[in-house]
Each structure stands twice: as C-alpha cells, then as structure tokens.
Design a protein around this nucleic acid. Structure first.
Lengths: 340, 340
DNA sequence: GCTCCCTGTGAAATCGTTTTCACAACTTTT
DNA sequence: AAAAGTTGTGAAAACGATTTCACAGGGAGC
C-alpha cells in the first residue's frame, strides 16, 4: 500500500482523495478556494502515495519552469564558485533550481551553453561580465529570458547588472601605489581577450597612472591565466625584462600569490624591493607571506543580489536593474612606500 | 521573416518544411530513416525560424530529461567546486545539464534538495559521502533514479561509488608520521557528525596509531569547520591544552593552513617543533610557509569518472559501479623527523 | 508474377499537469 | 423576492513534443 512500483500520478491522488484532478492541482498549488476538508483529504492521499509532481508536465502546461541558468568561466576559481554558492543558496530557498554551465572563458562555447539553457526552459540566466556574442543576447531576448550580468556594473539597454566598476577598481590600485611614492610599475593582468573585467582593471590602472604623469610605455603589462604558475612565470618576465618595477598590480590574488612565490624563490624581498597588490580578496590573501594587499570583490553579495533580482516581480525589478557594489582596498603586508 | 515574436514550435517547422511534425521530430533526433532531401528542408526551416525545442514537452513525452543533479555540502570549498567543475564539463559534452544544490553538510536539507531534484526529473544524482537519510535513498530508489557516491569508496547494495578509502588515507598519514619517529600526536578533524569522510580519516589515523602501540587517550582530537580561522583556533587548543603533540594531522588543507598560521603567530616552528599534515592537496598547499605536506584527493578525476558512470549504458555500468581511486602522499616542507 | 521485406512518411494518440469554462449551491445586495 | 455575487468543484481542452501504428511504394527472393 505504501510502496508504489512506478510513481503515483496526480490522477491517482485524485482517485484516492475522491475528487477531480483539478482539485488536487489546486491544493498542490496553494489555491485558497478549496474546502478545508477536501484539502486535507488530498494532502493525506498525496503523502500516502508518495506523490511527487512531474515537473516537465507542470512546466509544459504552466510555462513556468522555476529553473535558472548560470554560465560562468569556471568553478575552479573561488571567486566564481563563491558567487554561485550564494546564488544557489538564495534561489533554493524559493524552490528555484540552478543549472550551471562553464564556458572556460570562451564566448562561443558560452553561446552553446546558453542554447542548451534556453532549450531547458530556464526563466533567467546569470552571466559573467559584459562581453558576449551578440547572438547569445539576441537569443535570450527573443525567447524573453531575462539575464543578469555579474562582476561588472556596465550599463546596458536590456538585462540587469550587479557588480562593480572594474576600471574604477584598477584606478584605486594605481592611486594607492602612487600615494606610496612608486613611479615604476608593472602589471600582471588576467587574459584580456573577450574579458571586459580583466581589460577594465588594466585600463583603469594605466589611465590613473597616466593622469599622474606616468608614461604608459614605461609600464610593462603581461597577461596570465588563473593558476599560481602563471603568476610565477609572469612575475619572472616582469623582473627580468627591462626596468624593474617597484610596484606590481595583479588581476587576481592567485596571480599575486604566484608572483610572491616567485619573488621568494628569486630572493626578491616583498615589499621592500617590490610592492604587490592583488585582486579578489580570496582566502589565500591571508596565506601568502607577506600577507597580500588586495581589492575585495563582493562575490557572495553579487550572487545573493543576482538571485534577489531574479526572484523579484517585474515591478520590483526596475529598482534593482543596476546595482553597483563597492570595492574595498584591503591593506596587508605586501605593499610599502617605495625605497623603504 | 527572421524575427519571431514568441517562439517557433515544431509544427511551424513542419509547415515550412512541408512535412509532418513526426518527420521533423525524426530529423531533430537523428533518426536515420529520413530522406536526405526532406532532412535538409527541415534543417533549413528550423534554422530559419530560430527553432529551439521545448525541453519540457520533450521530456514529458519521451521520459528522458537529460538532467542530472548534484548535492554537495558547499561550493565554497575548492575540493567540491573542482569536482563539480569536472563533472559539469564532462556532462555538457553530451548535452546533459547539471542542477546543483548545496546542503551545507545537513542531511535533512539534503533530503529536501533531493526531493526537488526528483521533481525536476533528474535521471541521476551525485552525492557526497555515504551518510544520507534512509528516506533520501528510498526516494531515489523508488523513482528509479540512480545515484553515485563520491569522496568515498564504501561498498553499497545499490548505487555506485567513485572515490577513495578515507580510513586508509588516515592510516597513511599516521604511518608516515610514525615513520618519522613521532610519538605524540594531535588531530584537527573536520566536523564528524553525519560526515563519514571526516570520521573515516580520524578513525584510520587513530587505528593505525593504536596498532603501533600509541594509546588513543594520548591523542587529542579537535574538530573544526572549513575555514582558516577554524584551523587557527583548533591548533591553539591543541598546543595549549595538555601535552603538546609533535605531529598534527588535519582533515583538510584549509585547517592545516590555519594551523600553520597559528604556529607562525605563536612563534612555534614548523616543522621543527611540530609537523603538520594536511588533506586534499589544494592549490593553497603550495602557498603556506612552510609548504604543506598533504594527501592528494583526486577531485577532478572523481567528477569526470562520476560523469562517465552516469553517461554509460546500463550494461557498461556494471564494470564501473565501484571505483576506488588512489590517494597519494605529497611530501613538502611542513613535516620532519621528530626532534630535529 | 507473387510474396516479403525494406524505406520513408503522416495521422493520431499520448505524456501528466494546469487552466478555462461552466455550473451548482449558497449568500448578500437591491 | 429577484438579481448579483461568492465559493467550491468537475469536465474537458491545452501545453509541445515523441511514439505508435498504418500504409504506400519499390526492390529482392522464390
């Protein structure tokens, strides 16, 4: 009586509760216009049969899937994993499920992933950054799927954005290092191709330096992916080619950690000989020696707020469409006044 | 002609291609029994209309959702995020989507998440560890949803497991430290409640010590969550209460990194005064000073192999049901012979 | 030349819900 | 006391695909 071989369907519940399928549907969806007695019968019958609604059928008829998609570069980097963790936690409070796809920083692959998400019927999509194939956005708009940019605060015609201004963050780093008296700079940026965040940080950094009379040509910029080794290699190039910088800004804490490791191995004192600034404020920023000065990215907040936007009603959304979060400079031990 | 307001349906494609819906369906699903000429007409019509199939309808009729669920403790820990990254990458190669839920190490919450996944119609579920509510497994079995345990190699009646033997890993750590001559031990375990992995590592460690004549009562075990601060606090307790251990085994690299940080702050030399062994071999193991000796967990492999199991046909699966992966000891700088 | 078996196609049923519409039985307003 | 709402319920249509079944036409085997 308890163990059903296949799976009980709504009509089975209706039969057991001695009412119509329509009424069972009403009870299950919290429609208030159902007599309490009948309601209880239905609830009991559903429990007795171990009834679980068929989401596909429900979605097909109601055109509401309660599914959200996220396409991120990788889960193998804490800055994204943490955002997704917060996003998922918030969504699942409201019984909304999250489908995750990784694009590996490839916008063509991102398009394919988006296509799959559309096919699955997601109602919203969370994207990282603002560089996407026009076809990707066109597809989402055509299907009336709203999307949210994260890690950026770039204005846009449609869709929403919750994030921060990468260019401003880059300028903040430059300002801080200039104020410490530095005049010879280097930068280890993330890969900037198709990556507005990495490019924005670099541009902000260089712009601010230029505004203070530093010739861009004197600033060596190298690019690395997101592994410790990349940071190590990039730092080596920076320290061996041309004039040595006394201050280096890194596009992520991992690159910065790699840079510090290189200095350690090469016998270069941080911060006495070179100051290093990271980006993200991951847990690892406390693990390097010296501990890392960095810019804090509000990863959890972005995930949570993106979820709030998605869960909001269309009228509430208008207020939430553009949300710029603050970036804080966290000063630790990897930076010091020049020449000290 | 190009921009459709709502969304083209299969029947629209059929009309444009001048054939029946059945034929369109056949073309889209790669059924070979369709004339090449007709096939081309259909493909062209679908493209012209920007047709995207409705996954719900497809799933409802065909009873195949191509959806997989994963319930993990958190994405905020690299050991799980990395596994999921590999899992997702492999699944999406075959156009299978992954729904992720986090349980926060709470098996009651895990049940709720599983329920939601069942409702969504996932065909398989990836679980972490072997401690689950009986109701969770019963539900999955009743609905004929197969599941895979990860991070454990525990044998089981139904379902599959791809992982490693946590007890054996704990013994490996003990053996290594014993061989270095240590005789006074401490352990910082993960929270062991409802967590067979954390408990397994602890038990293995203690069992091996006991086999070598170390009295369990002399080994202080404290438990911490998965933050640096937890490791710091636990190490403090270990070093301040009772007899000081000369060797400490930690249930994760993060705890170990916290422990090293504590030692650094408290002026305790690692490894001269105390040897520390971590677990996981995360990227951070290279960032601590001294670098961390640890046991490598094959997170990516588990994700990939779990995906392969899920994607395999029932007949292939029999071979893949039980898959024990090797754990390697990675010796770095945080361990040394006792009293040296 | 007849049967049998392919290949290619379409009509119609079907998957399990939700939603619309209709209506009965009361209650409230005019 | 008639008209106009409410409330609670069920029958049947609908969502958009896939699948089953039937069958036409052509080639192979006897």
């Amino acid at each position: 009586m308890d163990i059903e071989d296949g799976s009980a369907k709504l009509i089975d519940v209706a039969r057991l509760a001695n009412c119509s399928p329509a009424t069972v549907s009403r009870v299950l969806n919290g429609n208030p216009n159902v007599n309490k007695i009948v309601r209880d019968r239905v609830v009991r019958a559903a429990r007795e049969l171990g009834y679980v609604p068929n989401g596909s059928a429900r979605a097909l008829r109601s055109t509401r899937t309660r599914l959200v998609g996220a396409i991120i570069p990788t889960l193998d980097h804490a800055i994204y994993a943490t955002m997704v963790d917060a996003l998922q936690a918030r969504l699942s409070e409201k019984d909304v499920s999250l489908i995750i796809n990784t694009s590996g920083y490839d916008i063509d692959l991102e398009y394919e992933q988006a296509r799959l998400l559309v096919e699955r019927g997601v109602e919203s999509v969370v994207l990282v950054g603002s560089t996407h194939l026009p076809a990707t956005l066109a597809m989402l708009e055509q299907k009336r799927i709203d999307y949210v940019y994260t890690y950026t605060s770039k204005a846009m015609e449609s869709g929403a954005a919750v994030g921060f201004d990468n260019e401003k963050a880059g300028r903040t780093a430059a300002r801080y290092l200039l104020d410490l008296g530095h005049a010879q700079f280097g930068m280890i940026a993330g890969i900037t191709q198709d990556n507005d965040r990495a490019a924005g940080r670099r541009d902000g950094f260089l712009n601010e330096l230029e505004r203070s009379g530093i010739d861009r040509a004197t600033v060596t910029v190298v690019e690395g992916a997101y592994r410790l080794d990349d940071g190590r290699r990039c730092m080596q190039r920076l320290m061996e080619e041309g004039t040595r910088p006394t201050a280096v800004f890194c596009g992520s804490d991992i690159l910065a950690a790699g840079a510090i490791k290189y200095c350690h191995a090469a016998g270069i004192a941080v911060p006495r000989e070179v100051s290093i600034v990271g980006f993200d404020n991951l847990e690892i920023a406390e693990l390097t020696s010296p501990e890392l000065t960095t810019l804090e990215v509000p990863a959890r907040d972005m995930g949570r707020i993106a979820a709030d936007y998605i869960l909001a009603s269309p009228s509430q959304r208008l207020h939430l469409r553009q949300r710029e979060l603050a970036i804080r400079l966290i000063v630790r031990e990897s930076t010091a006044p020049v020449g000290r």
